[in-house]
Amino acid sequence: MALLEVTNLGISFGGLRAVDNFNIKIEKGQLYGLIGPNGAGKTTIFNLLTGVYQPTDGTIALDGEVLNGKSPAQICQSGISRTFQNIRLFHEMTVLDNVKAALHNQMTYSLADTFFRLPKYRKKEDEMNRKAVEILKVFDLDSHADHLAANLPYGKQRKLEIARALATNPKLLLLDEPAAGMNPNETAELMDTIKLIRDQFDITVLLIEHDMKLVSGICEYLTVLNFGTELASGTPNVVLNNPVVITAYLGE
């Protein structure tokens, strides 16, 4: 059984059909790319998968569990986490706290532990600190742990957002244009990091990206989206040489 199975997904905003009859199957451990021209509906699909929008038609199933009707927070607990095209960090919190906020559902203690600083509070907070630093180390951010997220340079903010998404311990990680605004060196480094987290954390990755070098470099499978529907699917080599896809990107 595929990890993520989306069938006949569709959503309309008023009269506009933003996504229509969209199907995708992602196997466990896959690095999957979702590409398409601007306005094709890629981010809308991410919003549907994470419960920000509720689909008008179709079903979304993760590991056999149907996610339709669940809130974003519930979907996160079911095992999908994401980053955002326009970075959404907790700006006034430290880098460490950003990651610890994402550990919210994994290392828990009660309000009584909080108010009265019972031993469980210290124990779980220490556990959180260890785990958070461990994740930050993967992204080379541990030295910034005590800085405010807002003060990080752009590239590191993108990384922190991925680190935070990872901290929720997802089965499926959605990355929305992770390389946007990065220079070629940073992009190359990011490609290595994405591969590394897939292997080290044993998760599946679905990413939206415009950088074709990154897409063809790391994605094992691609789906091309145009006007809210699937245009083509397959391995990067096949898809990127498909004349229909080239036309969609470059025009007639």
Binding site: S71, P72, C76, S81, F84, R88, L89, H91, E92, A167
Partner: peptide, 16 residues
């Protein structure tokens, strides 16, 4: 605090 900074992101990391 995470809700204050960005409630959409807070939801996305599983905070009700």
């Amino acid at each position: 605090r995470s809700i204050r900074d960005n409630y959409i992101a807070a939801e996305s990391v599983g905070i009700p």
